[in-house]
């Protein structure tokens, strides 16, 4: 063997040792990117497996989210009280625990629409654990906690703050309107104030709807209260 061959072989071995060290010590990779929790897959194990072997984990989480949206959008699924939404959401966050929107949207559905308050709180807490720097989740947790304790004023306060955020679930606006009406019934001395707040909210939803359903909803409410004909 010539000196050149020795040098090249030596260099290759040094680099190979370096690569093994990198794989072993890859602190960034190991600390921040959790091992694939295949056993935790609830609903779509095939897609979860596919995601992990293809290197498109985030993308497949997005596709599963689209599927979850279609599921929510199909009224037929209302017959079974959308019971698949939680397992579907679990799969999404199993694939990508840092996908924050499903925590917000699905916990809202669980809490306000399906009445699964504890599950919703547990779900949003899991989101906070995985995304401690994402402040919005804490806002939602506060809203759920106050609502669970029947503290409607604080719930309304937090939801009002939440809907000021650009990417809030549109459903939350409708929920806030209902909470204002509940407050109007609960506090007769403040009835006009809370009804006024609800009308202001519906007017805003009517003028600047975040989704078409919100406009229809606001229109029907405003008609009922005689604001528009």
């Amino acid at each position: 063997m010539t000196l050149k061959t020795w040098l090249i072989t030596g260099f290759s071995l040094i680099l190979l040792a370096g690569s093994i060290t990198l794989i072993h010590k890859d602190s960034y990779y190991k600390q921040q990117f959790k091992e694939f929790p295949f056993k935790e897959a609830k609903k779509e194990p095939f897609y979860l497996f596919l995601a992990s072997i293809s290197g498109f984990r985030s993308l497949i989480a997005d596709f599963l989210w689209m599927d979850a949206i279609q599921y929510i959008g199909d009224r037929e699924n209302g017959k079974e009280k959308y019971k698949q939404i939680y397992p579907k959401a679990k799969d999404i966050i199993t694939l990508d625990p840092n996908f924050t929107y499903p925590y917000i949207a699905v916990s809202g559905i669980l809490f306000f629409e399906l009445g699964e308050k504890d599950t919703a709180i547990e779900f949003i807490k899991f989101g906070i654990k995985n995304n401690p720097d994402y402040g919005k989740l804490k806002l939602y947790l506060a809203a759920y906690t106050y609502s669970k304790d029947d503290n409607l004023r604080m719930t309304a306060l937090y939801i009002k703050a939440a809907i000021k955020e650009e990417d809030h679930p549109p459903m939350l606006e409708r929920i806030l309107g209902s909470i204002y009406l509940k407050l109007a019934g609960k506090e007769p001395e403040q009835k006009n104030f809370w009804t006024g707040e609800a009308i202001k909210l519906w007017a805003e939803m009517y003028e600047h709807p975040s989704e078409p359903l919100n406009r229809t909803y606001a229109e029907s409410r405003l008609k009922r209260f005689g604001v528009i004909k």
Partner: peptide, 24 residues
């Protein structure tokens, strides 16, 4: 797939490491 957990910018040391790994 790590884009949403970076918590800021990617660690330059990590980028350097993977570059060396590719060179290897």
């Amino acid at each position: 797939d790590k884009l949403y957990l970076a918590g800021g910018t990617f660690d330059p040391y990590y980028i350097l490491q993977i570059t060396l790994y590719a060179v290897l």
